[in-house]
Nucleic acid binder design. Structure first.
Lengths: 139, 139
DNA sequence: CTTTCTGCAAACCGTTTGCACCGTT
DNA sequence: AACGGTGCAAACGGTTTGCAGAAAG
């Protein structure tokens, strides 16, 4: 159920990084996070487990993990960056403008259309991200 | 061809704002800009016409114009905010990862699919924005 | 004459970095 | 041991803000 320490160690080593206490804690926290926390939230949650973690290390680790492809950095308007474990299936994000909740959205059909559109313009997609701000329909 | 001073004055008044020299200059600069400039670029271009404009005013004016719906603020990853005159037709943006160019992308079909998908989840779209990072296919 | 706007400089806030020490390999 | 990683505090860069004077209505 919970990720083994050895899995975390291996994942970090595979990424060419040393398996330090701080990195393993941060990675495990992010894996347990169902939401899309920002650096400060990760700092608080990580610190609750291991109080030797500094904010600087959170940022440095997040950069390293992103570069290694283990996590994804998400940028929303007027907000600090949020992070998620790299998703297996491509998905976009819907933000509930009232609650602030972030919901994951997948649509193969949209992805296919988008790729076609871009290719027709002579480009190939490197990455893409859609942010939809929406409000619950009452009733 | 060029927007009349009276048009600018009227647009600002309609937005409930005073038609100051600085705002009219900034607005006309943005209207003439085919690219999607950020605050600093707008500051430089505006200052070339009217050297009484300060960076603070550029930011304050951009916020006011955005709130009034006259312009749109665009957020790309790891970049300062860029601005465009509010587009009549909904469009997304493709960034050429090599040149940094921003290209406007429209697709009614994608928009329709997206709206359907969101509605099926019990939401209505407030706004949406897609950023595609892509590379030119050589050939 | 009132109210809004402006320039200036200082404050802000998320993020990055230099440094000297510490832990992993 | 060697090297990468860490905490701390200071720096950074885009953006915002308090203030006193200037301009629009």
């Amino acid at each position: 159920m919970a990720a083994e320490i050895n899995d975390l160690t291996q994942a970090l080593r595979d990424a060419g990084l040393r398996a330090t206490q701080q990195r393993m804690t941060l990675l495990s926290v992010l894996m347990k996070s169902a939401d899309h926390p920002n650096a400060d939230e990760l700092f608080v949650r990580t610190r609750a487990i291991d109080d030797s973690v500094s904010l600087a290390t959170v940022y440095r680790t997040l950069s390293a993990l992103e570069e290694a492809g283990l996590i994804r950095r998400l940028s929303f308007e007027n907000e600090s960056a949020r992070y998620e474990i790299t998703p297996t299936a491509d998905h976009d994000h819907l933000i509930d403008v009232d609650s602030g909740d972030v919901i994951e959205l997948a649509s193969d059909e949209i992805n296919r259309l988008r790729e076609e559109l871009v290719r027709r313009m002579g480009y190939e997609i490197v990455s893409h991200h859609t942010v939809i701000r929406a409000r619950k329909i009452d009733g």
